[in-house]
Design a protein around this nucleic acid. Structure first.
Lengths: 159, 159
DNA sequence: TATTGTTATACTCTATAACTATA
DNA sequence: TATAGTTATAGAGTATAACAATA
């Protein structure tokens, strides 16, 4: 693709320096949208005191119990050093637990506690309300799918 | 709209707790995409040592010279207290300057220096390369426009 | 020798309260 | 009394280096 995707037409109105309008800058709009969505998430989950990172960890554990700490951290793009405090917090709240892996006793496999399973059900219900609110703003599930598809194009080839 | 946008069909494969797949969660995908884009931005601008927030401030000043500090901060979603260090840095580098406003001497109107104008031209060229790289990933300008439109729907009604 | 989890640490971003100078 | 800019500070989030236990 050789065509100039970003044009620099002059408005010919004054002597100002030509700059891209913030409203059309991908990174800027992405950041603003992400902050908005996280804000809605935080308000939705304030009653159960759950942050986005904690939500994602619980969701992974629920879906694939037994994964090692470092596997969960890497799949979420979290440094394993920073994962420790996150995991400590979930364990202190009695939602998840570390178990020494039998095959490789250096590593910890991570599981939900029974209380954690109950919590995940409640959490999933709260999330559904939050997500449906976003889907409504987008104009429906089809638009949500289009958005996810476009974001995946940015992220591809690697997750 | 009353239809359930987020379904909870069971996979009927095992006894795991039902959770949303991370790959389809709007907030999660938004965050990953934003981090990726900022990463590309930081690499593109590493040679001129410019961060996304600094870029956005310079772009605003270039487009609308004379705005007050607090007006710029608010339009970018930055707290005015946090804007001070940002502005200090641009001023120390000789790219922008504060001028005591004549009408209201509490406020500072912000302008580019001559060197700042030269810098903005260079910065805009680097940005265009970066942005074109993203547009190519998305599949063209039309896809970029669709993405911006969807992100605006999330952000609407307020910016 | 390499890897997993861990600690310690530093740097950026963000949020709040309180000060100053002007209005 | 209220507002613009400022300072100080505290909390997240994130990045790196180094250590102990285990492989």
């Amino acid at each position: 693709m050789k065509a100039r995707a970003v044009s620099r037409k002059s408005s010919a109105k004054d002597s100002r320096v030509e700059v891209p309008p913030m409203a059309t800058i991908i990174g800027y709009k992405l950041r603003r949208a992400q902050l908005f969505v996280f804000q809605d998430f935080l308000e939705s989950f304030s009653k159960v005191k759950l942050r986005p990172a904690e939500f994602s960890v619980l969701a992974i554990i629920a879906d694939r119990p037994g994964l090692k700490q470092s596997e969960i951290a890497e799949s979420l793009g979290i440094k394993r050093a920073n994962f420790v405090a996150l995991m400590d917090s979930l364990e202190r709240r009695g939602l998840a637990e570390r178990r020494k892996a039998e095959t490789d006793r250096r590593s910890h496999s991570v599981h939900l506690t029974p209380e954690g399973e109950k919590f995940v059900k409640k959490m999933t219900a709260i999330w559904a309300e939050h997500e449906n609110r976003l889907i409504e703003r987008l104009g429906g599930v089809a638009e949500r799918d289009r958005l996810i598809d476009l974001l995946d194009r940015l992220l591809a080839p690697g997750e």
